[in-house]
Design a binder for these strands. Structure first.
Lengths: 192, 192
DNA sequence: GTTGAAACGGAGGTATACCTCCGCTACAGT
DNA sequence: ACTGTAGCGGAGGTATACCTCCGTTTCAAC
């Protein structure tokens, strides 16, 4: 067995059933849930999700016994993709590598706000997600700090909250979102 | 009739019924709704709100025919209080007056996130709230800009989004919230 | 104090979501 | 090809929320 780059990836892989039809349904459910949560928030109807996925409601419950389990799987999947995006960025300039990853993070936050909100509070998977996220993005930030590009009196957790908060908000257009995010990042860089 | 300081205050006053028992119930409903929305989000049960207020469900519907109407009234009430807080702040230093008001704004946002979210989209009252908010806080910001305390390449709308986004997020503790908000405000002040 | 009107409460009809149960289907190992 | 089993769908019971209707209560003007 190969070493997993992030604690979350093994968990994500273990969830997916092996039989062909079951795996297909599992994927369809995850995709449908992602869409439904983005559209209707955390209270999206589970029956609607099953309908979107083209499977029976029982199939949803077999794969995800609780609403929370479904949340966790959707969230873990997203985080895993995000972690993998961080690999390879370390070849770039410290500050540019960091903002590039934060940009990806922002894109993920803006649509997934509902899921994150519902996961407020702790769980094993959520904890693994946090760790993976910090393992992926933390080094990028600390490298920027060492290079003198980012201020020293804050940590990576502060940065994620900052970006998460801003990107979870609805803006009039993408230009405003980028402008506001830029202002905040000027604050991160302010001690230059 | 005296001139109303902000467009929202007349609307707020007009909503409240005049008969004693009706006014009492109206106030109780608003308070209960504020609490319920903060606790359960935009999907809080209307019957639960009526129960908290100690009134029948019919009384709720008589005062607020739709869920949206209830949202609007709660929101308008909050905004009105916030606007009144801005009056008198202009005697202070430009930057300090601005951050002082933003602090009040942040305190309001952090608990009322659900209401604001549900009001995304336009309505007459929401529009009046926006205008009042801008009329109350905008001058504080522009004064800070003229004094060279705030950067010129942004507007008051950008600032509100910035603060609203950050404060709507859950932080581990108040210290982190203040630290992150401070970083963001450093960005606002960066062009000094 | 009388009285008319405004306001009240909560029962109950309707809709919708949750979740379980069970007879049927399709996969995969031999 | 056969066959055991893992997986499937959706009907239907249960719970909950929405909202209306109407007999009763409370206010306030006179």
């Amino acid at each position: 067995m190969t070493a997993q780059p992030f604690p979350i990836s093994a968990i994500v892989a273990a969830q997916r059933p092996s039989r062909k039809d079951a795996a297909r349904n599992y994927d369809a459910l995850l995709a449908a849930a992602r869409e439904a949560f983005a559209e209707h928030g955390a209270e999206a109807s589970l029956e609607d999700i099953a309908r979107r996925a083209g499977v029976g409601i029982a199939t949803l419950y077999r794969n995800f016994p609780t609403r929370r389990a479904l949340f966790e799987s959707v969230y873990a999947d997203e985080v895993n993709a995000l972690c993998e995006a961080a690999v390879g960025l370390s070849a770039r300039e410290p500050w540019e590598a960091l903002t590039s990853w934060l940009d990806r993070f922002a894109g993920y936050m803006v649509t997934k706000r509902a899921v994150r909100e519902a996961l407020e509070g702790d769980s094993e998977i959520f904890q693994a997600c946090r760790e993976s996220m910090y393992a992926a993005g933390g080094p990028l930030f600390e490298r920027a700090q060492r290079a003198g590009a980012a201020r020293a009196d804050m940590d990576f957790g502060d940065l994620l909250r900052l970006v998460a908060g801003i990107t979870a908000t609805a803006f009039t257009d993408d230009a405003q979102r980028d402008r506001v995010l830029g202002i905040a990042l000027d604050g991160v860089r302010a001690a230059r």
